[in-house]
Design a protein around this nucleic acid. Structure first.
Lengths: 202, 202
DNA sequence: TGTTTTATTGAACAGTGTTCAATAAGTTTG
DNA sequence: CAAACTTATTGAACACTGTTCAATAAAACA
């Protein structure tokens, strides 16, 4: 059955080729501004072919969505070596913000773009949930060391994620203009440091 | 010059008619899903006419954008009667979150949708800045009463806005699925209460 | 070889934002 | 009142969008 094997490999190669093209165009022009024809042109195939490998534009989005989370997770995992949970939590925030700054379009795809179809929990958001869990378990560890007393872990985690996301979303959607005389980097960094200051007193 | 006057009134009426139609369709179907033809149909005029009164879809967006901020501001202004600045600050957050919950599409337009063109600071974001200023001055008042010591007002304000926006943006874009067994309302309310708890200790 | 699967194309459909010549309506002049 | 001029309105057209699908080319199997 060597042929069937090779066939499957070729199919995977084509899938990869499409995703490579899609990623390039997506990250260059953003989600809405990217058309299926753009992607097809990028890899010199006809638009119709994309529908042989993917159900629709949403499914391509979906794949890149997961790719983004894998990338973020890999950067967060590095912090596992930080022993103190509170130090780790603080660093996670920095990594999160830097991820958004350096991967604006991935961030958009992951957290802001309208989710195309109802992504089944089975495949789609599993990886997102993994990132949340990482945050939540760190919060729990902090709590075991006496921090954030009497706080519900889930709500507290949601609040932390909200703050981080708020900082990044305002940045991604250019809603920082009202704060004059400050660069985006300054705003995000010092804004987050204000939040850390709050956490430290708790 | 009675005719010229009436003419101008008629022009304003038509402008209003278009905005009324646009608002209805926009808030029904969201920004991206609304087409110029949809709007034209809604008010029983041809698509081309819209371009006689507005430069493009972006300008209509722009007008509704300001409308949204006027609405939000009017709700925040009610809190001016609250004497204690910290109580007022806390209430502002609640109002902000409730505004997002009840005006999801306005919120989208105001804080999330890609700004079409570079809105000139002169007309476009002036009203947004007004809302920020209201928040900032409340923070400053708090500080004068001894709260949030040694915090930069602008960064601290940005941080608060980020938290609020994060809560609302996750809600608006359906990124709350990772927190199971909790309704959106519970998450948002109790998440915000966690944040208030942090503020109270500061 | 011929038959059957599989992969690929490109035209077509219904939709989008936008432009613009034609026309209708209203106002101002002769 | 009629002609000239402005202004408002139309609808067809352009170039684009995501998606489908019959036709076809290529490869695998018999």
């Amino acid at each position: 059955m060597g042929i069937a094997e090779r066939k499957q490999e070729e199919k995977q190669e084509m899938t990869k080729r499409i995703l490579d093209g899609a990623r390039k165009v997506f990250l260059e022009k953003g989600y809405e501004q990217t058309s299926m024809r753009n992607i097809a042109n990028e890899i010199n195939y006809s638009p119709g072919l994309l529908y042989f490998y993917f159900k629709d534009k949403g499914e391509i989005f979906h794949e890149l969505h997961r790719e983004g989370f894998r990338l973020l997770l890999s950067q967060l995992m590095v912090l596992n070596k930080v022993a103190d949970p509170f130090e780790r939590l603080k660093a996670m925030g920095h990594v999160f913000i830097e991820f958004a700054q350096h991967n604006k379009d991935y961030y958009n795809l992951m957290f802001i773009v309208e989710v195309p179809a109802k992504m089944p929990e089975s495949s789609g958001f599993m990886i997102a949930q993994e990132a949340i869990s990482l945050l939540a378990s760190t919060v729990k560890e902090c709590q075991q060391k006496g921090r954030f007393k009497d706080m519900d872990v889930e709500y507290f985690t949601f609040m932390i994620l909200s703050t981080l996301h708020g900082i990044c979303a305002l940045f991604c959607k250019d809603r920082t203009a009202s704060f004059v005389n400050k660069t985006n980097e300054e705003l995000m960094l010092h804004g987050y440091e204000c939040f850390i200051a709050l956490l430290e007193k708790s």
